[in-house]
Write a protein that binds this DNA or RNA. Structure first.
Length: 470
RNA sequence: GGCGUGGUACCCAAGUGGCUUAAGGGGAAAGUCUGCAAAACUUUUAUUCAUCAGUUCGAAUCUGAUCCACGCCUCCA
């Protein structure tokens, strides 16, 4: 039985799908105006784990992720610039080029982290009609009003507005860091449709019943999820930051328009912190996946790092912590590789195997407790009463959830990559020296090989060469 | 000002009333092995869970107070 923490109820609830055996799920993807940083990837990773756990439990999953390429404003309560347009201006490219470029980088990074692609990626600009008709629907039902700069949602008309995030609207007003627009009726009201500036031609703008403009940021998710998954579906997830505003607004829009319950389970991933503070794009303090790769880390080292913590807890990122994950991951792979070579040994007692399997299942089904699942993997690998073959099979089975490419890595270890001939010859010479007990020469040759960037390691009947770890 | 998290070994991090006198990984130390080194294997590494009170037969886990750190109420995964 799968249990997950539902932000709506604020408790760990048993997961019961709307339709037996099937799950419809939506998550808020990237806004493609800049690179995604490793904190963003923590959330995409968490959603990936959720999908994998659902599939491991036998559910058929229909998974949609959006790509925001319009309407996401820089700040100021619907008064800032559009992030896409701003980024395009700064880089001297068209918004469409910006969108294409950052989407491609995102897709590449996602793949490197072995995050399974959703069934459908939806772009906000591909669903303008749907967004307009949802705004119309809200207008007809009396949830909107028009100001000088757009069509707004009147949150006071939706009684359950504060439910998801348990917002204290009065308290917000007192400490608000920013004055809110005079034209807004309530501090929490938000734009559904924004008018293009009178004196400026936007690159992205569309005709609408209210005038030329572009959709507000929140409406895209309501419109697209509705179009693809229907009015009422199972799971909606995203980063924790989306809970008080974006997801709260989505519920208000969707439920006001359809009159039905929107989503059954809301899941939110916590932030990755740099030291004690969150990693954030607006402060410029962030790390991309590519920069980790440039530093000599594998994207899967980072994945292993993420598996060590629960998704609902803040995680401190540091090079030290990443290094320990890297070591842990490499150790794991070398253990598995040596299992591959070893004799199979005795047949394993089935009850022992089942014990590990059920511990694993219990961990992943307990609100995706990956740290515990990882400890089950390690205990299993260190166990004395399981044959090498069974260990590898179980590891492969668990890896359907972990996504660490454990078996691929064992099949073709990268250490065997290309050893230059020069190094091979030296190593052979060293073996000769060793055989004639000229250990001084042997050590000299080993040092020489070391300076070429390789390590020679003695084995029972010879040696093996590995690239020095950086 | 309001709302909300969290403080567990040298580091990362599970555990949220008895099964645990606190998982797992990294690191460190000792031993076996080895010409040496590495790897591998074995063992060790928190009588203690920010602090102080309290509830309980029993608390890291519940309650209260205190200290500290962080997030949200501007955009953000």
């Amino acid at each position: 039985m799968l249990k997950i923490f539902n932000s709506l109820t604020r408790s760990v609830d048993e997961f019961v799908p709307i339709e037996h055996g099937k799950v419809r799920m939506y998550s808020c993807g990237p806004t493609v105006y800049n690179y995604q940083h490793i904190g963003n990837f923590r959330t995409f990773f968490f959603e990936d784990i959720l999908v994998r756990v659902l599939k491991y439990n036998g559910y058929e999953v229909k998974y949609v992720m959006n790509i925001t390429d319009v309407g996401h404003l820089t700040s100021d309560h619907d008064e800032g610039e559009d992030k896409m347009e701003k980024s395009a201006k700064e880089k001297g490219m068209s918004v469409w080029e910006i969108s294409k470029y950052y989407t491609e980088v995102f897709l590449k990074d996602v793949k490197l982290m072995n995050i399974l692609a959703p069934d459908i990626y939806t772009k906000a600009t591909d669903y303008i009609e749907e967004q307009i008709s949802m705004v119309k629907c809200l207008e007809e039902k009396g949830f909107t009003y028009i100001t000088s700069d757009g069509v707004y949602y009147d949150t006071s008309k939706f009684p359950d507005y504060t439910k998801l995030a348990q917002l204290d609207v009065e308290g917000m007003r007192e400490g608000a860091r920013i004055e809110f627009s005079e034209e807004k009726k309530n501090i929490t009201d938000f734009a559904l449709w924004k008018f293009s500036p009178k004196n400026e031609k936007r690159q992205m703008e569309w005709e609408s019943p209210w005038g030329i403009g572009f959709p507000g940021w929140h409406i895209e998710c309501s419109a697209m999820s509705n179009a693809i998954l229907g009015k009422h579906f199972d799971i909606h997830c995203g980063g924790i930051d989306h809970l008080p505003v974006h997801h709260t607004n989505e519920i208000a829009q969707s439920e006001a328009c359809t009159g039905e319950k929107y989503v059954n389970y809301w899941l939110h991933g916590e932030f990755l912190n740099m030291g004690d503070e969150k990693m954030s794009k607006s402060t410029g303090k962030f790390i991309t996946l590519q920069s980790l790769i440039d530093e000599g880390y594998s994207p899967l080292d980072y994945r292993y790092f993420l598996l060590m913590a629960h998704y609902k807890k803040k995680l401190k990122f540091s090079i030290e912590a990443l290094d320990s994950a890297k070591s842990g991951y490499r150790n794991l792979l070398s253990k598995l590789a040596s299992l591959k070579k070893s004799e199979n040994g005795a047949v394993t007692d089935a009850t022992i195997l089942d014990g590990f399997k059920s511990k694993f299942l219990q961990a992943i089904n307990d609100d995706l407790n990956m740290p515990v699942a990882m400890s089950v993997l390690w205990d299993m690998i260190r166990s004395n009463s399981i044959s090498a073959k069974d260990k590898l099979e179980l590891a492969a089975d668990f890896d359907n959830v972990f996504g660490l490419k454990l078996i691929e890595a064992v099949e073709k270890p990268e250490a065997l990559a290309e050893i230059p001939e020069e190094v091979s010859i030296l190593a052979a010479k060293r073996l000769e020296a060793k055989k004639s007990k000229d250990f001084k020469l042997a050590d000299e040759i080993r040092n020489e090989i070391k300076t070429l960037g390789y390590d020679v390691v003695d084995t029972k009947d010879g040696f093996s060469i590995n690239k020095s770890s950086s």
